[in-house]
Design a protein around this nucleic acid. Structure first.
Lengths: 129, 129
DNA sequence: GTTGACCTTCCAGTCGCTGGAAACCTTATA
DNA sequence: TATAAGGTTTCCAGCGACTGGAAGGTCAAC
């Protein structure tokens, strides 16, 4: 199948798939006209990558996950380890955003939001400590 | 004061401050030796930007916030609007991360994490829908 | 044979820095 | 006075993960 079909089926733009080939995540065949030709296995890989990306895994994590997926002698501990480290990063990010959210929410609530210039949000950003 | 002093006081690396000048956020003077010379006003601006960045505002948001800060005839509604839109983006991001977290947590819990190859995490990523 | 949809490659841009190289300036010490 | 250490300058390149666009080749239908 051609790139737009595999893209539709995997839920990824053609551009992204070309990029994934560029960085060596997939290796589709080429037809005599130079078009990429994707097999079912390529589609599965792309869908796998798409789901991993959807869970926030980095490209390098995806590469590692694909390698583990294809290594029938893997230890599930290695996969779990990868996932747990990713989970920790997500939790850290959530905490960071939560902290921002808390401060911002307070500032927004304190601001009248009318035509007058007085603004606790700006004062909050400007304050000396 | 020189760049490293203002950097220390504002809590920003010198590199970042040069970058902020590049993109026109600040406009420090220059001494006869070509060194940047920062006044107190520059320090305040940098600290302001640093705090806004710390709350996750984009550089363009920071530019707008600075402009509002310096516009004594601003309406606080404009500031509040900016902040609320940013807050909405943060909330969306948190929700996205939470969703990832939920799925990942389930997968991680289901995975034995031992020497055997069976792995629900990989199966989860590989499954057809 | 011509249209229009698809495919190709390559280059550049996004965001917000960050690292490094090469060269100049300042300050302290021997 | 020499020199060494540390601060400063500019410029260029790279990060991650794409995305947009240009210029051109290919294919299927009418």
């Amino acid at each position: 199948m051609n790139i737009s079909e595999v893209g539709t089926r995997a839920g990824l733009p053609a551009k992204t798939i070309r990029y994934y080939e560029d960085i060596g995540l997939i290796r589709p065949e080429r037809g005599p006209n130079g078009y990429r030709r994707f097999r079912e296995a390529d589609l599965h890989k792309l869908a796998f990558i798409g789901r991993a990306r959807g869970l926030g895994f980095s490209i390098e994590d995806c590469r590692a996950l694909l390698a583990l997926y294809e290594d029938k002698g893997r230890a599930s501990a290695d996969v779990k380890d990868l996932a747990e480290r990713h989970l920790a990063r997500i939790e850290a990010k959530v905490a960071e955003l939560r902290a921002m959210q808390a401060v911002l929410t307070d500032l927004v609530h304190a601001c009248a939001g009318d035509a007058r210039p007085d603004c606790p949000i700006l004062s909050g950003l400007a304050e000396k400590e």
